[in-house]
Design a protein around this nucleic acid. Structure first.
Lengths: 212, 212
DNA sequence: TAGATTGTTAATCGATTAACAATC
DNA sequence: TAGATTGTTAATCGATTAACAATC
């Protein structure tokens, strides 16, 4: 069992991974923590601490083996091979996410959408088909899916979540403003746009106040 | 000058605000920190500490005056009246955000989009017109806009950011994976989807590993 | 009055940062 | 060898949590 990894460290790993992949693409074999820190505006010591949790040992004066570090981070995050995911709620945000190919770099591939709207069911967006919510449990089973992106209206979020869990989904990426009630064995990660906007606007607000 | 507010506190304020607005809508005059804590799965002491920074005093046994607390949080966040914002990069995510009316509750209203694609310029999405990037500086001036949502491809993010800043934008809500280089007086808040997905997938990964 | 809730002060916890030895 | 970089141990910092008095 690994010593548990701090969430702030987990959140910085994709940044390192992006630079490491760029380095690999330009055939660099080694990369230093100092370089990573510069690129990401972090302290070198923080980068070293973060990388230490991967278990990869660096070479003094040389840095870290790029390929080895990529593998270690990918396996830590579970990004070594792509995982298929469903998406519930094919509204404008849902369609946008279905069209965003970039998640593949993060080990995620949206394979189908689900909705209750008869006008959407059967249609295809960005090459991905939309099914009725009733089909969910069966398809989760058949395709062995365990992750679902939630982009339904806030008012429907809890009800749909209950259905996802009943169907066997254990990982939910929640794009709604709703605080979901779920059992302990289900993992929910919320993309909290309101929180993010609050940070931006409060800083702008503080700045304006200072100028007056 | 206020004692500076911890970012984690700022991030929780919108959650309180949502519940307070619901309470106001159902004509409740007072609300207790205990209730807020229950609804949001937080510790009561944390809610009290957070609310303390608003400067609003609660009444023992009664709680906090709903209307007073709403006003205090809104003014802290700069959400008292809606601020107009531009959006740069009218791709699928950009269009989705232009169609999302929910930002109005967070004091943000997208008033126009900008793009370099001739096929998009002049068009209207969700009632919002798309302009050529060349028009940006002039419109920022004329409409007194200071915030821009950034939804361009990662490869264009830095170049577009430079243009935004040159045009007078001082607040950037960055939806791209790029780490932006900006002067100190510009405020950037990043919606880091990769970081969020890393947290979800690493937890799922750890869970699978434990089961084996 | 009794008791729920607020608010303050102190303790704890965890992440970041500093200092410095080890290494190639 | 000299010096850049890693890695470990300790110090600092800031947020969360605990304890408890104050209040209505």
């Amino acid at each position: 069992m690994q010593p548990r990894i701090p969430v702030p460290t987990i959140r910085r790993l994709p940044g390192y991974l992006r630079l490491l992949r760029e380095a690999a693409a330009s055939r660099m074999d080694f990369i230093s923590g100092t370089y990573l820190a510069n690129e990401l505006n972090l302290e070198p010591i923080q980068v070293r601490k973060d990388l230490a949790i991967t278990g990869v040992a660096g070479k003094p004066r040389t840095g870290f083996a790029v390929r080895e570090l990529i593998n270690a981070i990918e396996s830590l995050l579970g990004w070594s091979n792509t995982h298929d995911a469903f998406l519930a709620g094919v509204g404008s945000l849902g369609i946008a996410l279905m069209g965003y190919g970039g998640f593949r770099e993060y080990g995620l591939e949206i394979v189908a959408g689900f909705d209750i709207d008869k006008n959407k069911i059967g249609k295809t967006f960005h090459g991905k088909k939309v099914f009725a919510m009733e089909k969910l449990a069966d398809l989760v089973q058949r395709l062995g899916i365990c992750t679902c992106i939630l982009t339904v209206p806030a008012s429907a979020a809890q009800a749909v979540t209950d259905r996802l869990i009943a169907a066997g989904i254990i990982g939910i990426w929640n794009f709604t403003p709703a605080k979901l009630q779920t059992p302990d064995n289900v993992i929910v990660e919320k993309v909290d746009l309101a929180a993010s906007l609050a940070v931006l606007s409060s800083k702008l607000q503080a700045r304006q106040a200072k100028l007056i």
